[in-house]
C-alpha cells in the first residue's frame, strides 16, 4: 500500500517530467523564472483513508494530472492509517497531505490549511452510524451498547471522535460502552465489517459511504444508516509549514483550478467531489469542541 504510485506510470509521462524537470533545473541555474525558486523538487502528497484511497487507477490518473498541471514531479504517498501520515508530516517527509479534520487539528502547529474539497457543493460532511440492513431494531447508538462496534481509525473524526462524542452526550462513558470495539483502519472496511455481521454497528464517513453507495451499491445495500451527525468541516488538504509559499500557492492554485479543466472535472467526478475552496480553520470549530470535551487540544 505504501509504494509510490509514480512507478506505475507510463514511461511517456515519466520521460515528460524528466524532460520538464531538466528544463526547470536549467532555468533555475540562471535564475530567470519564479518556478526556479522551488528548486524543481519533487512534491510528495500524503493520501489517507479520508477518501476511497484504494482506487489505484484513479490515483494514478490524478497524480499524472497533478504532475502535468504543476509541471513538477509528484509522488503520492499512501498510508493505511492517519497516524502514519501524521508521522510522515511531522518528519517532513511530506509536503502536502489530504487528511481528516481531526488529525488536522492535532497537527495545526505543523501544517497549514491548503484547500478544502467541496462535497455536494459545500465543504462539509458528517458521521454516519450504520447497522446491518436486517437490523431494524436499532434507532440510535444507545441501542448498540451490548454489541461489537467497528471504528475506522483512532484519528478519524467521523469514524471515532464523533460517535464517542455522541455516546458521551448520551451520558455514557465511551470507553466501556460497547461490549467490544475494534478498528478497521479504513471507512470502507467499517462498512464491510457491519455488512458481514462482524460488528453490529459502525461509524463511517458520510462522504465515503455515499461514494460507496455509488461505486459499490451491493456493499452499502447490506447496511442501513441509523443516525447522521451534525456537519463537520470536510477533510482538508494541508501543507507542511515548511513548504515554500511559492509551492504552497502553486498547489493551492492547482487545486482550486481543478474544476476548470475538462480533465480536472473528470477527476472530480471520479472522486465524487465538486471542487475545492480555500476554506478557513473556523470550519473545524465543531471538531475542536469535541476534542476539547475529551481533553485533547
Amino acid at each position: 500500500m505504501s509504494q509510490p504510485i509514480e512507478s506505475s506510470l507510463p514511461n511517456r509521462n515519466r520521460r515528460r517530467w524528466l524532460f520538464d524537470s531538466g528544463c526547470l533545473a536549467a532555468a533555475g541555474l540562471i535564475g530567470l523564472t519564479r518556478k526556479s525558486q522551488a528548486a524543481g523538487g519533487k512534491l510528495r502528497v500524503g493520501m489517507t483513508p479520508a477518501f476511497l484511497h484504494d482506487q489505484h487507477s484513479m490515483l494514478g490518473e490524478w497524480r499524472a494530472f497533478m504532475a502535468a498541471s504543476l509541471q513538477r514531479p509528484v509522488e503520492f504517498v499512501q498510508r493505511d492509517s492517519y497516524r502514519e501520515t501524521m508521522d510522515l508530516l511531522r518528519l517532513e517527509k511530506l509536503e502536502f497531505a489530504w487528511i481528516c479534520d481531526y488529525p488536522y487539528l492535532h497537527l495545526k502547529d505543523t501544517v497549514r490549511l491548503l484547500a478544502v474539497p467541496l462535497y455536494q457543493g459545500r465543504p462539509h460532511y458528517r458521521s454516519y452510524l450504520i447497522v446491518r440492513k436486517g437490523d431494524t431494531r436499532t434507532r440510535s447508538i444507545a441501542d448498540l451498547s451490548d454489541g461489537v462496534f467497528a471504528y475506522a481509525d483512532p484519528y478519524s473524526n467521523t469514524g471515532y471522535l464523533s460517535p464517542r462524542y455522541e455516546i458521551r452526550q448520551l451520558g455514557h462513558d465511551p470507553a466501556g460502552f460497547f461490549r467490544k470495539t475494534f478498528f478497521t483502519w479504513s471507512h470502507r472496511k467499517v462498512v464491510e465489517a457491519v455488512a458481514s455481521g462482524l460488528a453490529q454497528g459502525g461509524a463511517v464517513d458520510s462522504y465515503i459511504w455515499d461514494t460507496l453507495a455509488y461505486v459499490e451499491p451491493a456493499l452499502t445495500a447490506r447496511t442501513r444508516v441509523v443516525w447522521r451527525s451534525p456537519e463537520y468541516g470536510f477533510p482538508p488538504f494541508v501543507a507542511h509549514r515548511s513548504v515554500a509559499s511559492a509551492d504552497f500557492q502553486l498547489m493551492q492554485r492547482h487545486l482550486l483550478d481543478t474544476s476548470r479543466s475538462e480533465a480536472g472535472r473528470r477527476l472530480l467526478g471520479l472522486l465524487h467531489l465538486d471542487g475545492f475552496t480555500i476554506g478557513s480553520p473556523a470550519l473545524y470549530e465543531g471538531v475542536a469542541r469535541m476534542m476539547r470535551s475529551f481533553g485533547e487540544a
Binding site: 467497528a150 467490544k180 475494534f182 478498528f183 478497521t184 483502519w185 472496511k189 458481514s196 462482524l198
Partner: peptide, 8 residues
C-alpha cells in the same frame, strides 16, 4: 495485538 479486523 487484539487486531480483530486483521484476524477477520
Amino acid at each position: 495485538h487484539d487486531n480483530v479486523w486483521r484476524a477477520f
